[in-house]
Amino acid sequence: MLSQLWAIVQRDLLSEWRAREVVIGMLVMALLTLLVFNFAFDLTGAQRVASGSGAFWVAVVFATLLGFGRATALERQEGAWEGLLLSPVERPVIFLAKLVSMLSFVVVVEAVALVVMAVLFGLPVFRSGVLVVLALGTLGLCTLGTLFSVMTAQAKAREVLLPALLFPLAIPVVISAVRGTVLELSGFSAEAAPWKSLLGGFVVLFFSLSLVTFGAVAEE
């Protein structure tokens, strides 16, 4: 099972390494979002922790959406997806593999965005607490995103449909991630704990739910 998982992830990473279509697009999107937010809100003054965390997460959410859109579009070319479904791999393994591939893309984008945040806005982002919130939030977002991106892959107006499904359902992730990041950046780790548990619960719940329902989604 692990070898199957690794084979799919390897294929995704390799094709991304050769084309560099998904991550570059996501990165540009994330950085431009941070730039625009810099003009929209004051990211240097007293409010910079609150605004910065918000800007960071909006950038991550936008970049993730874009990444899912691109990745599924690429997947559907040349019958790659059908081939994957025909291969003797259990559906949950396909889900896991897609999740891992997308996570690795998002993590690259987040790493760069964090450095940009640290340099431009002078925020102490490389704290273990912040990174935990970041990891949980990303996991939650990508879990739902993987499920929905497969559902929207063959729909008309896919670019409209994916955000329409993902945004409302990912609201707990966005709220807890932003609040958790703000509290961790301000040094209130104890206050951030409930947000981290909420994120953790969300991840566990929707991860298991996605594994169960993915079979119904990836059935052509």
Binding site: I171, P172, S176, R179, W195, S210
Partner: peptide, 16 residues
């Protein structure tokens, strides 16, 4: 299914 399960969590997160 996913949406229904999410509603209580949304409510909780918004309340907090």
């Amino acid at each position: 299914i996913v949406g229904f399960v999410d509603i209580p969590i949304i409510h909780m997160s918004v309340r907090w």
